Measured scan of single mutants.
Amino acid sequence: MRVFPVYAPKLIVKHARIFLTGVIWVKDLGRLEFEKGRFLLPRKSLPKVKQAILELNELIEAQN
């Protein structure tokens, strides 16, 4: 598990694309899981977490 002390979308996306499957922890967002290079949306999450995951997945799609 990698810990990101700040929310840096480009760096987080780079990590997810390299490792494809895993878990990261982002300060103020908490634990985020990714599989096959995409972030998974938890069943229950705060609106800011949901927005961050959608933003990260959009960045991943834009890079493909």
Score class of each variant (00 low, 15 high):
45 S>W: 12
18 I>E: 12
44 K>V: 05
55 E>D: 07
34 F>H: 03
22 G>Q: 01
39 F>Q: 07
34 F>I: 06
9 P>A: 07
8 A>F: 12
54 L>C: 09
45 S>D: 06
36 K>T: 15
39 F>T: 03
33 E>T: 15
25 W>G: 04
64 N>T: 11
4 F>S: 01
61 E>S: 10
20 L>W: 10
27 K>E: 15
56 L>H: 00
41 L>H: 09
39 F>W: 01
5 P>A: 13
39 F>E: 15
32 L>T: 00
20 L>K: 05
56 L>P: 03
11 L>I: 07
47 P>C: 09
38 R>L: 12
25 W>D: 10
17 R>W: 11
5 P>E: 15
37 G>Y: 04
18 I>F: 14
43 R>W: 05
60 I>G: 04
55 E>P: 00
27 K>L: 12
41 L>P: 13
2 R>E: 15
47 P>R: 14
64 N>S: 12
63 Q>D: 14
49 V>R: 06
1 M>D: 15
5 P>W: 15
43 R>P: 13
48 K>M: 08
31 R>S: 03
60 I>R: 03
5 P>D: 15
31 R>F: 09
52 A>S: 06
33 E>N: 14
21 T>V: 13
51 Q>T: 10
34 F>E: 00
6 V>G: 04
62 A>H: 10
54 L>S: 09
30 G>D: 03
42 P>E: 05
15 H>W: 07
5 P>L: 15
38 R>Y: 07
62 A>V: 12
40 L>T: 08
36 K>D: 11
35 E>Y: 10
27 K>G: 13
2 R>W: 15
34 F>L: 05
11 L>D: 13
49 V>G: 02
15 H>D: 02
14 K>V: 11
44 K>C: 11
30 G>R: 00
41 L>Q: 13
37 G>V: 06
48 K>F: 05
47 P>V: 12
56 L>C: 03
53 I>E: 00
63 Q>K: 09
57 N>W: 03
45 S>M: 13
55 E>T: 05
24 I>R: 00
40 L>Q: 10
27 K>M: 14
18 I>L: 07
40 L>R: 12
48 K>Q: 08
37 G>N: 04
51 Q>M: 13
21 T>P: 01
42 P>F: 09
26 V>K: 00
2 R>V: 15
43 R>D: 07
23 V>L: 13
21 T>R: 10
48 K>S: 06
40 L>Y: 06
36 K>A: 11
20 L>Y: 12
58 E>N: 11
16 A>G: 02
32 L>N: 03
23 V>G: 02
7 Y>E: 01
61 E>D: 11
10 K>P: 12
17 R>M: 11
17 R>I: 13
49 V>F: 06
45 S>F: 07
